[in-house]
Design a protein around this nucleic acid. Structure first.
Lengths: 198, 198
DNA sequence: CGAAAATTTGACATGACTCAACTGGAGTGG
DNA sequence: CCACTCCAGTTGAGTCATGTCAAATTTTCG
Protein backbone atom coordinates (compact mmCIF):
# COMPACT_ATOMS: atom_id res chain seq x y z
CA UNK A 1 0.00 0.00 0.00
CA UNK A 2 2.97 2.25 0.62
CA UNK A 3 3.66 2.52 -3.08
CA UNK A 4 0.78 5.03 -3.14
CA UNK A 5 2.99 7.19 -0.96
CA UNK A 6 6.04 6.83 -3.18
CA UNK A 7 3.93 7.53 -6.24
CA UNK A 8 2.65 10.69 -4.58
CA UNK A 9 6.17 11.89 -3.90
CA UNK A 10 7.24 11.07 -7.43
CA UNK A 11 4.62 13.42 -8.82
CA UNK A 12 7.02 16.28 -8.12
CA UNK A 13 10.45 14.98 -9.16
CA UNK A 14 11.33 11.32 -9.30
CA UNK A 15 13.25 9.65 -6.52
CA UNK A 16 15.86 6.98 -7.18
CA UNK A 17 15.16 3.54 -5.68
CA UNK A 18 17.78 4.25 -3.08
CA UNK A 19 16.22 7.58 -2.14
CA UNK A 20 12.85 5.89 -1.88
CA UNK A 21 14.23 3.47 0.68
CA UNK A 22 15.87 6.26 2.65
CA UNK A 23 12.69 8.31 2.66
CA UNK A 24 10.65 5.42 3.97
CA UNK A 25 12.97 4.98 6.97
CA UNK A 26 11.92 8.42 8.21
CA UNK A 27 8.26 7.47 8.23
CA UNK A 28 6.22 5.32 10.47
CA UNK A 29 3.35 3.19 9.26
CA UNK A 30 0.32 3.24 11.53
CA UNK A 31 -3.30 2.18 11.52
CA UNK A 32 -6.28 3.75 13.22
CA UNK A 33 -9.74 2.38 13.88
CA UNK A 34 -12.91 4.11 12.90
CA UNK A 35 -13.71 6.79 15.55
CA UNK A 36 -10.12 6.71 16.82
CA UNK A 37 -8.37 10.07 17.26
CA UNK A 38 -5.24 10.96 15.31
CA UNK A 39 -5.05 14.20 17.24
CA UNK A 40 -7.03 15.76 20.07
CA UNK A 41 -7.57 19.36 21.09
CA UNK A 42 -4.84 20.38 23.53
CA UNK A 43 -2.33 17.85 22.19
CA UNK A 44 0.78 18.91 20.38
CA UNK A 45 0.74 17.60 16.82
CA UNK A 46 3.79 15.33 16.86
CA UNK A 47 3.28 14.08 13.30
CA UNK A 48 2.24 15.10 9.87
CA UNK A 49 0.16 12.35 8.32
CA UNK A 50 -0.22 10.95 4.81
CA UNK A 51 -3.34 8.84 4.30
CA UNK A 52 -2.83 5.55 2.50
CA UNK A 53 -6.37 4.34 3.01
CA UNK A 54 -9.40 5.64 4.88
CA UNK A 55 -11.11 8.92 5.67
CA UNK A 56 -10.49 11.46 8.42
CA UNK A 57 -12.18 14.61 9.60
CA UNK A 58 -10.40 17.61 11.09
CA UNK A 59 -12.76 19.63 13.22
CA UNK A 60 -12.94 22.32 15.84
CA UNK A 61 -15.41 22.68 18.70
CA UNK A 62 -16.83 26.14 19.34
CA UNK A 63 -17.62 27.54 22.74
CA UNK A 64 -21.22 26.35 22.62
CA UNK A 65 -20.01 22.83 21.92
CA UNK A 66 -20.79 22.59 18.21
CA UNK A 67 -18.30 20.88 15.91
CA UNK A 68 -17.13 22.47 12.68
CA UNK A 69 -15.30 20.36 10.14
CA UNK A 70 -12.41 22.23 8.60
CA UNK A 71 -11.12 19.50 6.31
CA UNK A 72 -11.73 15.94 5.25
CA UNK A 73 -8.74 13.70 4.59
CA UNK A 74 -8.80 10.87 2.09
CA UNK A 75 -6.35 8.60 0.31
CA UNK A 76 -3.36 10.39 -1.20
CA UNK A 77 -3.78 13.48 0.95
CA UNK A 78 -1.99 14.92 3.97
CA UNK A 79 -3.65 15.86 7.24
CA UNK A 80 -2.46 17.40 10.48
CA UNK A 81 -2.23 20.74 12.20
CA UNK A 82 0.80 22.34 10.65
CA UNK A 83 0.86 25.21 13.11
CA UNK A 84 0.90 22.96 16.13
CA UNK A 85 3.43 20.68 14.42
CA UNK A 86 5.86 23.48 13.61
CA UNK A 87 5.52 25.53 16.77
CA UNK A 88 5.02 22.62 19.20
CA UNK A 89 2.01 24.43 20.65
CA UNK A 90 -1.28 22.80 21.63
CA UNK A 91 -3.73 22.32 18.81
CA UNK A 92 -7.30 23.55 18.77
CA UNK A 93 -8.34 20.84 16.34
CA UNK A 94 -9.45 17.26 16.63
CA UNK A 95 -8.75 14.74 13.93
CA UNK A 96 -10.53 11.40 13.96
CA UNK A 97 -11.28 8.59 11.55
CA UNK A 98 -14.56 8.12 9.72
CA UNK A 99 -13.31 4.74 8.48
CA UNK A 100 -10.50 2.44 9.52
CA UNK A 101 -7.47 4.28 8.27
CA UNK A 102 -3.83 3.48 7.37
CA UNK A 103 -1.27 6.25 7.31
CA UNK A 104 2.39 7.18 7.06
CA UNK A 105 3.56 9.58 9.72
CA UNK A 106 6.65 11.72 10.14
CA UNK A 107 7.84 13.60 13.21
CA UNK A 108 9.23 17.12 13.20
CA UNK A 109 12.72 15.87 13.93
CA UNK A 110 12.64 13.30 11.20
CA UNK A 111 11.26 15.82 8.75
CA UNK A 112 14.12 18.22 9.47
CA UNK A 113 16.62 15.44 8.97
CA UNK A 114 14.86 14.25 5.86
CA UNK A 115 15.31 17.65 4.22
CA UNK A 116 19.05 17.40 4.80
CA UNK A 117 19.30 13.79 3.74
CA UNK A 118 17.12 13.98 0.61
CA UNK A 119 16.99 17.59 -0.56
CA UNK A 120 14.49 16.70 -3.26
CA UNK A 121 11.93 16.43 -0.48
CA UNK A 122 12.14 20.16 0.02
CA UNK A 123 10.65 20.58 -3.43
CA UNK A 124 8.06 17.89 -2.82
CA UNK A 125 6.76 19.62 0.29
CA UNK A 126 6.84 22.98 -1.38
CA UNK A 127 4.60 21.67 -4.13
CA UNK A 128 2.39 19.98 -1.61
CA UNK A 129 1.97 23.21 0.30
CA UNK A 130 1.22 25.08 -2.89
CA UNK A 131 -1.68 22.75 -3.54
CA UNK A 132 -2.86 22.83 0.05
CA UNK A 133 -2.75 26.62 0.07
CA UNK A 134 -4.65 26.85 -3.19
CA UNK A 135 -7.28 24.43 -1.87
CA UNK A 136 -7.64 26.42 1.32
CA UNK A 137 -7.94 29.70 -0.57
CA UNK A 138 -10.63 28.18 -2.76
CA UNK A 139 -12.46 27.11 0.36
CA UNK A 140 -12.36 30.61 1.85
CA UNK A 141 -13.62 32.11 -1.38
CA UNK A 142 -16.36 29.51 -1.67
CA UNK A 143 -17.64 30.13 1.86
CA UNK A 144 -17.65 33.89 1.33
CA UNK A 145 -19.01 33.99 -2.19
CA UNK A 146 -21.40 31.09 -2.61
CA UNK A 147 -24.71 30.05 -1.10
CA UNK A 148 -25.03 26.85 0.92
CA UNK A 149 -26.84 25.18 -1.97
CA UNK A 150 -24.07 25.99 -4.42
CA UNK A 151 -21.41 24.83 -1.98
CA UNK A 152 -23.23 21.53 -1.58
CA UNK A 153 -23.44 21.04 -5.32
CA UNK A 154 -19.75 21.90 -5.68
CA UNK A 155 -18.93 19.45 -2.94
CA UNK A 156 -20.78 16.61 -4.68
CA UNK A 157 -19.03 17.46 -7.91
CA UNK A 158 -15.61 17.67 -6.34
CA UNK A 159 -15.93 14.45 -4.33
CA UNK A 160 -18.46 12.32 -6.21
CA UNK A 161 -17.18 9.10 -4.70
CA UNK A 162 -16.84 10.37 -1.15
CA UNK A 163 -20.58 10.88 -0.72
CA UNK A 164 -21.15 7.23 0.29
CA UNK A 165 -18.34 7.32 2.82
CA UNK A 166 -19.27 10.43 4.78
CA UNK A 167 -22.54 10.86 6.72
CA UNK A 168 -24.59 13.87 5.68
CA UNK A 169 -24.31 15.67 8.98
CA UNK A 170 -20.54 15.77 8.56
CA UNK A 171 -20.96 17.25 5.12
CA UNK A 172 -23.31 19.84 6.63
CA UNK A 173 -20.68 20.70 9.20
CA UNK A 174 -18.06 21.06 6.47
CA UNK A 175 -20.36 23.36 4.51
CA UNK A 176 -20.94 25.48 7.58
CA UNK A 177 -24.64 24.73 8.01
CA UNK A 178 -26.81 22.56 10.28
CA UNK A 179 -27.86 19.02 9.31
CA UNK A 180 -31.45 20.27 9.19
CA UNK A 181 -30.57 22.93 6.65
CA UNK A 182 -28.69 20.43 4.52
CA UNK A 183 -31.66 18.10 4.62
CA UNK A 184 -33.87 20.93 3.35
CA UNK A 185 -31.40 21.79 0.62
CA UNK A 186 -31.41 18.18 -0.49
CA UNK A 187 -35.18 18.00 -0.74
CA UNK A 188 -35.14 21.28 -2.68
CA UNK A 189 -32.60 19.88 -5.10
CA UNK A 190 -34.46 16.60 -5.57
CA UNK A 191 -37.69 18.49 -6.27
CA UNK A 192 -35.88 20.35 -9.03
CA UNK A 193 -34.46 17.14 -10.44
CA UNK A 194 -37.85 15.46 -10.35
CA UNK A 195 -39.33 18.25 -12.42
CA UNK A 196 -36.92 17.29 -15.19
CA UNK A 197 -36.98 13.52 -14.62
CA UNK A 198 -40.46 12.81 -13.27
CA UNK B 1 13.29 49.86 0.43
CA UNK B 2 14.28 46.54 -1.12
CA UNK B 3 16.23 45.57 1.97
CA UNK B 4 12.85 44.73 3.49
CA UNK B 5 12.61 42.04 0.85
CA UNK B 6 16.09 40.66 1.52
CA UNK B 7 15.41 40.68 5.23
CA UNK B 8 12.22 38.73 4.62
CA UNK B 9 14.11 36.09 2.66
CA UNK B 10 16.80 35.91 5.31
CA UNK B 11 14.23 34.93 7.91
CA UNK B 12 14.45 31.39 6.60
CA UNK B 13 18.14 30.76 5.96
CA UNK B 14 20.62 33.53 5.32
CA UNK B 15 21.76 34.39 1.82
CA UNK B 16 25.31 35.43 1.04
CA UNK B 17 25.77 38.93 -0.39
CA UNK B 18 26.39 37.36 -3.76
CA UNK B 19 23.21 35.30 -3.58
CA UNK B 20 21.27 38.38 -2.60
CA UNK B 21 22.41 40.14 -5.74
CA UNK B 22 21.54 37.17 -7.90
CA UNK B 23 18.10 36.88 -6.36
CA UNK B 24 17.34 40.53 -7.01
CA UNK B 25 18.10 40.14 -10.73
CA UNK B 26 15.15 37.77 -11.03
CA UNK B 27 12.74 40.32 -9.61
CA UNK B 28 11.24 43.42 -11.01
CA UNK B 29 10.52 46.52 -8.99
CA UNK B 30 7.20 48.17 -9.77
CA UNK B 31 4.89 50.80 -8.36
CA UNK B 32 1.12 51.02 -8.50
CA UNK B 33 -1.20 53.91 -7.79
CA UNK B 34 -4.09 53.79 -5.39
CA UNK B 35 -7.06 52.10 -7.14
CA UNK B 36 -4.77 50.60 -9.80
CA UNK B 37 -5.16 46.90 -10.57
CA UNK B 38 -2.34 44.44 -10.01
CA UNK B 39 -4.52 41.70 -11.46
CA UNK B 40 -7.97 41.59 -13.01
CA UNK B 41 -10.50 38.80 -13.31
CA UNK B 42 -9.90 36.89 -16.53
CA UNK B 43 -6.19 37.76 -16.67
CA UNK B 44 -3.51 35.17 -16.19
CA UNK B 45 -1.44 35.95 -13.12
CA UNK B 46 1.98 36.48 -14.67
CA UNK B 47 3.64 37.44 -11.39
CA UNK B 48 3.80 36.67 -7.74
CA UNK B 49 4.13 39.89 -5.79
CA UNK B 50 5.94 40.91 -2.63
CA UNK B 51 4.73 44.18 -1.10
CA UNK B 52 7.44 46.63 -0.04
CA UNK B 53 5.03 49.40 0.82
CA UNK B 54 1.29 49.89 0.53
CA UNK B 55 -1.92 47.92 0.91
CA UNK B 56 -3.77 45.70 -1.56
CA UNK B 57 -7.07 43.87 -1.56
CA UNK B 58 -7.71 40.57 -3.32
CA UNK B 59 -11.39 40.14 -4.02
CA UNK B 60 -13.88 38.16 -6.02
CA UNK B 61 -17.16 39.32 -7.54
CA UNK B 62 -20.17 37.04 -7.14
CA UNK B 63 -22.87 36.57 -9.74
CA UNK B 64 -25.05 39.30 -8.26
CA UNK B 65 -22.15 41.72 -8.50
CA UNK B 66 -21.09 41.87 -4.86
CA UNK B 67 -17.42 41.95 -4.03
CA UNK B 68 -15.89 39.67 -1.41
CA UNK B 69 -12.41 40.38 -0.11
CA UNK B 70 -10.41 37.20 0.28
CA UNK B 71 -7.18 38.74 1.48
CA UNK B 72 -5.52 42.01 2.30
CA UNK B 73 -1.87 42.50 1.41
CA UNK B 74 0.45 44.73 3.39
CA UNK B 75 4.17 45.34 3.73
CA UNK B 76 6.28 42.21 4.04
CA UNK B 77 3.60 39.95 2.61
CA UNK B 78 3.06 38.17 -0.69
CA UNK B 79 -0.04 38.48 -2.84
CA UNK B 80 -1.18 36.94 -6.09
CA UNK B 81 -3.31 34.10 -7.37
CA UNK B 82 -1.06 31.09 -7.05
CA UNK B 83 -3.39 28.81 -8.96
CA UNK B 84 -3.55 31.09 -11.97
CA UNK B 85 0.19 31.72 -11.73
CA UNK B 86 1.11 28.02 -11.70
CA UNK B 87 -1.45 26.75 -14.17
CA UNK B 88 -1.48 29.79 -16.48
CA UNK B 89 -5.27 29.78 -16.34
CA UNK B 90 -7.47 32.88 -16.05
CA UNK B 91 -7.97 34.14 -12.52
CA UNK B 92 -11.32 34.75 -10.88
CA UNK B 93 -9.82 37.35 -8.54
CA UNK B 94 -9.11 41.02 -8.75
CA UNK B 95 -6.26 42.63 -6.88
CA UNK B 96 -6.08 46.38 -6.55
CA UNK B 97 -4.36 48.93 -4.36
CA UNK B 98 -5.91 50.69 -1.40
CA UNK B 99 -2.85 52.92 -1.18
CA UNK B 100 -0.01 53.73 -3.56
CA UNK B 101 2.02 50.55 -3.48
CA UNK B 102 5.60 49.44 -4.27
CA UNK B 103 6.31 45.79 -4.96
CA UNK B 104 8.82 43.22 -6.14
CA UNK B 105 7.48 40.85 -8.78
CA UNK B 106 8.70 37.58 -10.21
CA UNK B 107 7.46 35.71 -13.26
CA UNK B 108 6.89 31.96 -13.44
CA UNK B 109 9.89 31.48 -15.70
CA UNK B 110 12.17 33.48 -13.48
CA UNK B 111 10.94 31.65 -10.41
CA UNK B 112 11.72 28.29 -12.00
CA UNK B 113 15.20 29.49 -12.91
CA UNK B 114 15.68 31.01 -9.49
CA UNK B 115 15.11 27.64 -7.82
CA UNK B 116 17.89 26.15 -9.94
CA UNK B 117 20.24 29.07 -9.49
CA UNK B 118 19.74 29.59 -5.74
CA UNK B 119 18.44 26.36 -4.22
CA UNK B 120 18.04 28.02 -0.84
CA UNK B 121 15.04 29.78 -2.30
CA UNK B 122 13.24 26.47 -2.44
CA UNK B 123 13.31 26.44 1.34
CA UNK B 124 12.31 30.07 1.57
CA UNK B 125 9.20 29.51 -0.50
CA UNK B 126 8.38 26.33 1.35
CA UNK B 127 8.40 28.24 4.61
CA UNK B 128 6.42 31.05 3.07
CA UNK B 129 3.78 28.62 1.88
CA UNK B 130 3.65 26.98 5.28
CA UNK B 131 2.76 30.31 6.83
CA UNK B 132 0.31 31.18 4.10
CA UNK B 133 -1.39 27.83 4.44
CA UNK B 134 -1.62 28.16 8.20
CA UNK B 135 -3.07 31.66 7.84
CA UNK B 136 -5.63 30.44 5.33
CA UNK B 137 -6.62 27.50 7.53
CA UNK B 138 -7.08 29.86 10.45
CA UNK B 139 -9.29 32.03 8.28
CA UNK B 140 -11.48 29.07 7.29
CA UNK B 141 -11.82 28.00 10.89
CA UNK B 142 -12.59 31.53 12.00
CA UNK B 143 -15.37 31.97 9.43
CA UNK B 144 -16.92 28.63 10.34
CA UNK B 145 -16.55 28.80 14.09
CA UNK B 146 -16.87 32.42 15.13
CA UNK B 147 -19.58 35.05 15.01
CA UNK B 148 -19.15 38.21 12.96
CA UNK B 149 -18.58 40.21 16.15
CA UNK B 150 -15.80 37.92 17.30
CA UNK B 151 -14.18 37.97 13.88
CA UNK B 152 -14.22 41.76 13.90
CA UNK B 153 -12.58 41.87 17.31
CA UNK B 154 -9.97 39.34 16.18
CA UNK B 155 -9.32 41.41 13.10
CA UNK B 156 -8.70 44.57 15.13
CA UNK B 157 -6.40 42.65 17.41
CA UNK B 158 -4.49 41.03 14.58
CA UNK B 159 -4.07 44.22 12.55
CA UNK B 160 -4.27 47.07 15.07
CA UNK B 161 -2.38 49.47 12.82
CA UNK B 162 -4.19 48.60 9.62
CA UNK B 163 -7.51 49.94 10.84
CA UNK B 164 -6.65 53.50 9.77
CA UNK B 165 -5.57 52.40 6.33
CA UNK B 166 -8.58 50.33 5.29
CA UNK B 167 -12.12 51.72 4.94
CA UNK B 168 -14.71 49.94 7.07
CA UNK B 169 -16.71 48.60 4.17
CA UNK B 170 -13.65 46.69 2.98
CA UNK B 171 -13.25 45.21 6.42
CA UNK B 172 -16.92 44.21 6.35
CA UNK B 173 -16.37 42.49 3.03
CA UNK B 174 -13.35 40.66 4.42
CA UNK B 175 -15.40 39.52 7.40
CA UNK B 176 -18.14 38.27 5.09
CA UNK B 177 -20.83 40.72 6.17
CA UNK B 178 -22.42 43.91 4.80
CA UNK B 179 -21.17 47.38 5.75
CA UNK B 180 -24.50 47.95 7.52
CA UNK B 181 -24.01 44.91 9.71
CA UNK B 182 -20.48 45.97 10.58
CA UNK B 183 -21.72 49.42 11.49
CA UNK B 184 -24.24 47.83 13.86
CA UNK B 185 -21.60 45.60 15.36
CA UNK B 186 -19.43 48.63 15.99
CA UNK B 187 -22.16 50.52 17.80
CA UNK B 188 -22.86 47.41 19.87
CA UNK B 189 -19.19 47.16 20.83
CA UNK B 190 -18.88 50.86 21.68
CA UNK B 191 -21.98 50.64 23.87
CA UNK B 192 -20.33 47.84 25.80
CA UNK B 193 -17.09 49.79 26.12
CA UNK B 194 -18.96 52.88 27.30
CA UNK B 195 -20.56 50.92 30.09
CA UNK B 196 -17.09 50.32 31.46
CA UNK B 197 -15.59 53.70 30.57
CA UNK B 198 -18.49 56.16 30.76
C1' DC C 1 -34.24 -7.80 17.14
C1' DG C 2 -33.50 -3.56 19.54
C1' DA C 3 -30.82 0.50 20.83
C1' DA C 4 -28.48 4.29 19.12
C1' DA C 5 -27.56 7.32 15.56
C1' DA C 6 -28.84 9.74 11.38
C1' DT C 7 -32.14 12.05 8.80
C1' DT C 8 -36.33 14.42 8.05
C1' DT C 9 -40.06 17.54 9.15
C1' DG C 10 -42.58 21.28 11.56
C1' DA C 11 -43.01 25.55 14.25
C1' DC C 12 -40.86 29.37 15.66
C1' DA C 13 -36.85 32.66 16.67
C1' DT C 14 -33.12 35.37 15.16
C1' DG C 15 -29.22 37.27 12.91
C1' DA C 16 -28.00 39.23 8.83
C1' DC C 17 -29.53 41.20 4.40
C1' DT C 18 -31.98 44.55 1.42
C1' DC C 19 -33.80 48.84 0.47
C1' DA C 20 -34.03 53.48 1.54
C1' DA C 21 -33.08 57.73 3.68
C1' DC C 22 -30.00 60.65 6.14
C1' DT C 23 -25.42 62.64 7.85
C1' DG C 24 -20.92 64.14 7.51
C1' DG C 25 -16.42 64.48 5.61
C1' DA C 26 -13.13 64.29 1.57
C1' DG C 27 -12.06 65.65 -2.78
C1' DT C 28 -12.86 68.50 -7.00
C1' DG C 29 -13.72 72.26 -9.98
C1' DG C 30 -15.07 76.87 -10.69
C1' DC D 1 -11.31 79.17 -1.02
C1' DC D 2 -15.91 78.00 -1.16
C1' DA D 3 -19.73 75.33 -3.09
C1' DC D 4 -20.86 71.16 -4.70
C1' DT D 5 -20.68 66.37 -5.41
C1' DC D 6 -19.70 61.93 -4.09
C1' DC D 7 -18.86 58.36 -1.15
C1' DA D 8 -18.46 56.23 3.38
C1' DG D 9 -20.83 55.41 7.29
C1' DT D 10 -25.10 55.23 10.06
C1' DT D 11 -29.85 54.24 11.11
C1' DG D 12 -34.62 52.37 10.49
C1' DA D 13 -38.08 49.08 8.72
C1' DG D 14 -39.27 45.01 6.70
C1' DT D 15 -37.83 40.38 4.75
C1' DC D 16 -35.51 36.12 4.29
C1' DA D 17 -32.35 32.47 5.05
C1' DT D 18 -30.76 29.75 8.41
C1' DG D 19 -30.70 28.36 13.20
C1' DT D 20 -33.00 26.29 17.30
C1' DC D 21 -35.91 23.19 19.58
C1' DA D 22 -38.75 19.28 19.41
C1' DA D 23 -40.59 15.20 17.59
C1' DA D 24 -41.25 11.62 14.16
C1' DT D 25 -39.16 8.45 11.08
C1' DT D 26 -35.57 5.79 9.04
C1' DT D 27 -31.17 3.58 9.01
C1' DT D 28 -27.22 1.40 11.03
C1' DC D 29 -25.01 -1.84 13.61
C1' DG D 30 -24.09 -4.59 17.72
Amino acid sequence: MQELFIRNINKYGTLTTEEQLIVLTFFQYRTFRKRQYLLQEGDIARYETFILKGVTRTYETDKSGHEHIVQFGIEDWWVGDLYSFLSASPTRFNIDCIEDTCVMQISKNNLDHLYERVPKMERYFRNLLQNAFIASTTRVSSILVKSATERYRDFLEQYPDIKQRIPDHYIASYLGITPQSLSRIRTQLSIKINRILP
